[in-house]
């Protein structure tokens, strides 16, 4: 048969002599290598090097290869913690949706480190940043999420931010969310979509 069991060393490649040392500094140096495969492997291995968190995240805005970016985000998520969070929060202002969404995905996995920044983000002057913050809340596993969303419903003047919050509250809302939902319906009484979204959220919460 032409099924061949590989007994030679080419099947499972042996560890090769490295052009760079695979310590933290060596791996950081490889993040700027011309070969995307080298950069991708460096980014992957840096997941075990907490000291590299800030440098790794900073690399995101310079990195042009989507596969390397993807691995950088994964390694940042595995590293986690406040350095990663503070390094990624500025990406909520990025014009690049891939960068923004990647950042939101990683931030959503860091509830305790992200929580101290939510109030400030929800008060940001830029409505888009507030919408992205609401998107982040949709995936953030933190017990304050319903309260933060209620705060949006009661205070935010931007109908798009409120609409985004309603979509999330339809899933995570509780009876405690009802006053804020009714407040949003009242504040945007002329907006048919908000009325529909409020009714949907109340229906999902299970109280008429």
């Amino acid at each position: 048969m032409a099924l061949k069991k590989s007994t030679d060393t080419t099947t499972l490649r042996p560890v090769e002599a490295r052009e760079y040392p695979r310590d933290t500094d060596g791996l950081i140096a490889q993040l700027a290598d011309a070969d995307a495969t080298v950069r991708r492997w460096a980014a992957r291995d840096l997941a075990a090097h907490p000291r590299a968190a800030a440098v790794l995240c900073a690399r995101l805005t310079d990195e042009t290869d989507a596969s390397v970016r993807s691995v950088i985000f994964s390694s940042a998520a595995r590293l986690g913690g406040s350095v990663v969070v503070t390094s990624l929060l500025p990406l909520l202002r990025s014009e690049d949706p891939a960068l923004r969404n990647g950042a939101i995905e990683v931030l959503a996995g860091q509830p305790d480190a992200v929580a101290p920044y939510i109030e400030k983000l929800l008060g940001d002057a830029d409505g888009d940043v507030r919408i992205f913050t609401v998107n982040l809340l949709g995936d953030l596993k933190h017990p304050n999420v319903p309260q933060w969303l209620a705060q949006v419903l009661v205070n935010d003047v931007n109908v798009n931010v409120v609409g985004a919050a309603l979509e999330v509250l339809a899933e995570v809302g509780t009876p405690a969310s009802l006053p804020a939902l009714r407040a949003a319906a009242k504040r945007f009484a002329d907006d048919a979509y908000i009325g529909f979204a409020v009714d949907l959220a109340i229906g999902r919460i299970g109280v008429s």
Partner: peptide
């Protein structure tokens, strides 16, 4: 499947890991 249903099996060395 390879042995029974791939006509080119004899032309290549196929490794299954």
């Amino acid at each position: 499947y390879l042995l029974e249903r791939w006509a080119k099996i004899e032309q290549y060395d196929v490794e299954i890991l």
